[in-house]
Amino acid sequence: MTDSKDSGDSRRSRTKARGKRQQLTAAAARVLHEQGVERTTIADIARAADVPTGNVYYYFKTKDELIEAALSEHASHLESLTGRLDQLPDPRERLKALIDAWVGQRDIAARHGCPTGTLAAELDKRAEGGLDITAGLVIRKLLDWVEQQYRQIGVTDPEGHALALVGAYQGMSLLSNALRDPEIMAREGARLTRELDSLA
Rank of each mutant, 00 (worst) to 15 (best):
V51K: 11
A162W: 07
E122P: 05
Q152M: 14
P115S: 09
G104C: 06
D197I: 01
A26G: 04
D3W: 06
H77P: 00
R94P: 02
H74L: 13
A28M: 07
Q148Y: 10
S13C: 00
Y150N: 11
D50I: 08
R111Y: 06
L24H: 00
D100S: 06
D86C: 03
R191A: 08
N55V: 10
D3I: 00
T40M: 10
S10M: 04
L163N: 13
E183N: 05
R180I: 03
A121V: 02
L98V: 04
T193L: 00
A27H: 02
L196I: 06
F60N: 14
P158Q: 10
Y169D: 03
A178E: 05
G36C: 11
S13H: 03
T118W: 02
V37E: 08
A135H: 07
V37S: 01
D157V: 07
R21K: 09
T2G: 05
R18M: 03
D64E: 14
G167L: 09
E147G: 13
L119D: 03
R140S: 14
R30W: 05
L143M: 11
G154V: 13
S7D: 05
Q87A: 15
G117R: 04
Q105N: 08
I139G: 12
R14C: 02
T41R: 12
G117E: 00
P115A: 02
G171S: 04
L199D: 07
L131W: 07
I139Y: 03
Q149H: 06
L174K: 03
E38H: 10
V31N: 10
H77D: 15
A49H: 09
S176G: 13
Q149W: 00
K61N: 14
A101T: 07
P158T: 12
T41M: 08
I42C: 07
I139A: 13
S176Y: 03
A168F: 04
A17R: 09
T15P: 01
K125C: 00
D144E: 13
D181P: 00
I67H: 05
S173E: 02
S176C: 02
G136H: 08
T41K: 10
E128V: 12
I184V: 12
L192K: 04
A46S: 13
R39S: 12
D9N: 04
K16E: 09
H33S: 12
L78V: 15
T82N: 10
A101Y: 12
H112T: 08
L88H: 10
R92P: 05
P89G: 12
V155S: 12
L78S: 14
L78P: 09
A190F: 02
A110R: 01
E68D: 15
T53D: 13
G113T: 04
R30A: 07
G154L: 13
D132A: 15
I67F: 06
Y57P: 06
A43H: 10
L85W: 11
T15K: 10
A168P: 01
I133K: 09
R180E: 07
V37K: 07
